[in-house]
Every structure is written in structure tokens, then in C-alpha cells.
Design a protein around this nucleic acid. Sequence first.
DNA 1: CGCCAGTGTGGCACGACGTGCCATGAAATG
DNA 2: CATTTCATGGCACGTCGTGCCACACTGGCG
Lengths: 198, 198
Amino acid sequence: MDSARLVARRRSATRLAIAEAAARLFAERGVAATGAEEIAQTAGVSLRTFYRHAHLKQDAVIPLLEVGAERWQEQLGGIAPGADLRAAIADVVAHALAVDEDGPGQALTRGLVLTMLEDDDLRRVWDKVNGDSCRVLESILAVHLDGDDPLAAPLLAEAATAAIRITLERWAADGAPSGAPLGDAARETFERLSRWWS
Amino acid sequence: MDSARLVARRRSATRLAIAEAAARLFAERGVAATGAEEIAQTAGVSLRTFYRHAHLKQDAVIPLLEVGAERWQEQLGGIAPGADLRAAIADVVAHALAVDEDGPGQALTRGLVLTMLEDDDLRRVWDKVNGDSCRVLESILAVHLDGDDPLAAPLLAEAATAAIRITLERWAADGAPSGAPLGDAARETFERLSRWWS
DNA sequence: CGCCAGTGTGGCACGACGTGCCATGAAATG
DNA sequence: CATTTCATGGCACGTCGTGCCACACTGGCG
């Protein structure tokens, strides 16, 4: 029973090892100039194992972007049925980017985002991750407000993911966002995108 | 001098032939079960020529999504410097989806969007196309309103592309959008996403 | 008319990618 | 200790995507 958790930890550990090796090599030489065998060797796994965890070579970095994704799930699942959805989502957005504020992962994450925006292949991965996040969020929101407006869920999901994406892209490109914490910047962007409705 | 235009027409003709063949085969068997050689043969070109027009096998359908993209360019370029940007973009959004209203391309386009949303590989292409459109639009808008708010261009671009995307996805999935023309639906969605600022 | 760029195309070969299949080894269960 | 389960490794194989060269076509120039 407890073994399942242990196995899952080992799985995600190798996934992270592969992701970090891929991120480092991609940042150095780009995706096209990095062989899959090379990433696998750097991560200390076989080529076959590499492709078990990453369907495409470029997708190897995705686990690095999904840290904290499980936080979304529970935080969104814990919203009371009658609560103010917009305010609740604003909290989720702010909290999503407030993770490891000033932590050691800051520089690493920033370098990863920069690399993904510059490399043609990784930009496609960036678009896919954002698109998937938007679709997942929309399906979760649809449960909370089924009935009334069919556009409510898509628009709210779009506003939330766009706020996170735009904040991250500006942060990665322009350096620190004038000193304000990332979470607050994302919340402000989201509020600006969604303040017009109740 | 006129030859350049003629050559360009021949180029886009073969591009469209490849795109239509790919769209048909992808809809029938999916991307994974369709060989590149098969698409090339259906389009009447060589395998080498196919890969000259589509860097990736899945990207072969992109030209079908870019019809009318050049209309954006000139329409956006024709905006007066002092005009109301939000209203102008609303017109562009509405006009973009009003193209060949009730035309023969309606059913074809709807089938293509449906296929792209269902197939895992094509959904990545869908995300890429939308992301690229958003980035191009943002760079164009940045020229029109440089100076004041650095968030204005990203947010406006996001609202415009999201409005088009959400309208198209709902139209493809749920059938006709309760009788309203696509252009009007997209304009309404955009207004709703962007009405809060001047 | 003949020669010469420039350009789109086809054919070939080759490296890289991604997967199906089976064997191995380690950990949990009885 | 026997057995089941699961992640991994190794191998082979088909497909993808590209670099390179040759060919055909078109338009300009002496």
C-alpha cells in the first residue's frame, strides 16, 4: 500500500533527472543539436527509458513546468460551491507563481523559460503546455458553473492561463518585473483581464 | 517583374494541394497512421517536395488555417494612428471569421478544426498556430501603442486571438452557434474579453 | 539565337527519431 | 522461498526529416 507511493516517487525522480539533463543540454546547444542518446546518458538512464518518460525528445522538459500543478488541483477542488469564483481563481493564479519565491529554483526556471521562448522546437512545447493547462482548467471550472453562461468557463480559463503565461514571459524576458513579486504581478494581470464580470 | 507574382502563385498552389491532401488523409486515418509518402503521392508531388513545404508532417495543414491571414496584415496596417484601437481590433476579429460566410469552405474548415481538436498531434499544431498568431499580433500592436502601458499589447493580442480561437472551437464542436454568424459571435466574445479598458 | 542566372523539383542516401518486443533484476506479497 | 509486479535495458526495425546533386523551366542579356 505504501509501496505504491514509493514507486511513484522513484518514477518522478527519474523523470526529473531526465528533465533537468534535457533542460541543461537544450539551453547549451539547442534542441536540434542535442541527441536523445546524449540526454539519456547525461541523466544516467538508457535510451529506451528516456523515451518511456518523454514521448518526444522536446517533451523531456515538461516535468519541470508541472511542479506545483498538483497544487492547482487540490486548491481548485477545495473551492466552496457558492464562493466567488473570480476571486478564488485570482488566489490560485497568484499562488501558482508565488511558489519558491526567492528560492533556488528561480534562476533555473527563468533560464528554462528563456530557452523555451528562443528555441523554435521548445516554443511549440511551451504553447502545448499552456494550451493543455487552459483546457484542464476549463473542464474543472465547467463543473463549478454549469448551467448559466456557456462562455463563462472558457473565458475564465483563458484569462487565468493567459495571466500566468504573460507574467512569466515578461519576467523571463525583461528581468525582474520592477521588484514586485511574481504572484502579485500575475494576480494584477488576471484581475485586469477578468474584472469586468461578476 | 510579374514573374515573381506568378511564381508565388505556383508555390502557394502546390502548398494548398499538399495541405488539402494532408487534411483529408489526417481526417480519415489520423496523423500517426498516415505516411508522409502517402500525402505526397496524393498531392501529386515528390516526398522531397512535400518536406520542402511542410517542415513537419503535421504542419502540412497549416496553409489551410492561414487563408485570410494576409487580410489581417493590411487591415491592421491601415489603422489610423489616432483611432480607437479596441474598436478597430473588434472589426478585424469579426471580419476574420466572416470570411466565406455560407461559402463552400465552411464545412471543410469545420471538419478540419474538429480533426485538429481530436488528434493529439494536430492539437499541438493548433496550439502553435494560435500562439504564433498571438505573437505576431502583439508585435504589430506594440507599434501602435508604444510608450504607455507595457501590458496593453500582450493583453489586447491575447483577447483577440482567444476570441477567435474560442469561437472557432465552440463552432466546430457544438455545431452552428445558435444561428448567429461566426463573425458576430467572435466580436461579442472579444468585446466581452476587452471591454473594461479604453 | 544562344548563353546564363535563379528557382522549384526529383532522386538518393544517410543519420536521427520513436516504438514493439523480450529478457533481466529488484521490490512487494503470500 | 516462490511468485507476482513493475521499471529498466538491449535489440531491431520502420519512419521521419534533411543534405546534396542533377534536372527542367523561366526570364534577362549580349
